[in-house]
């Protein structure tokens, strides 16, 4: 537990300024710190995937795809901070664009399907396959 006591001062520092980028070139981020963010992002992606596979409500299924977009966004921003480069942040703007376009189209489709079958159940459309 020696390393835990070493960890504590860093954990208890509530000062955000130590992590926010400052000056022309802020402090570099170690790959381990990057790994923390990537783990969170991967976990969020997998929860979204599991939700997409298990839920039967069409709206929730599309909500889960939005969650996977969000996970990709966290990974992009983390890499952007790691390389001290704004390209990752720029691509999150395009994630937002695609998510908005997807939400508009998917929800229009869902409303259309709902009008036809009076149900949001994905499994009532199984006759569509092959």
């Amino acid at each position: 537990m020696n390393s835990l006591s070493h960890m504590l001062p860093m954990l208890t520092s509530l000062d955000l300024s130590s992590t926010l980028a400052q000056g022309p070139l802020p402090a570099a981020m170690s790959t381990i710190t990057l790994y923390h963010y990537l783990f969170t992002s991967a976990a969020l992606f997998c929860i979204g995937l599991i939700g997409f596979l298990t839920r039967r409500n069409l709206i929730i299924m599309f909500l889960c795809t939005e969650m996977m977009f969000q996970a990709a966004g966290i990974a992009l921003i983390a890499f952007s901070r790691f390389h001290l480069n704004h390209t990752g942040e720029t691509f999150v703007i395009f994630i937002l664009t695609v998510a908005a376009a997807e939400a508009a189209l998917a929800l229009a489709l869902v409303v259309l399907l709902f009008r036809r079958k009076e149900s949001l159940d994905a499994s009532v459309w199984t006759e569509l396959k092959g």
Partner: peptide, 28 residues
């Protein structure tokens, strides 16, 4: 954190990612 004590992220990371993952679990 225990294996690499010199590069743990700020405590806000743990708070925010726990909230994000817990509410993601509740979404599904």
């Amino acid at each position: 954190g225990l294996k690499n004590p010199e590069s743990v992220p700020n405590i806000h990371f743990y708070i925010f990612s726990l909230i994000a993952l817990a509410s993601a679990l509740r979404v599904i």
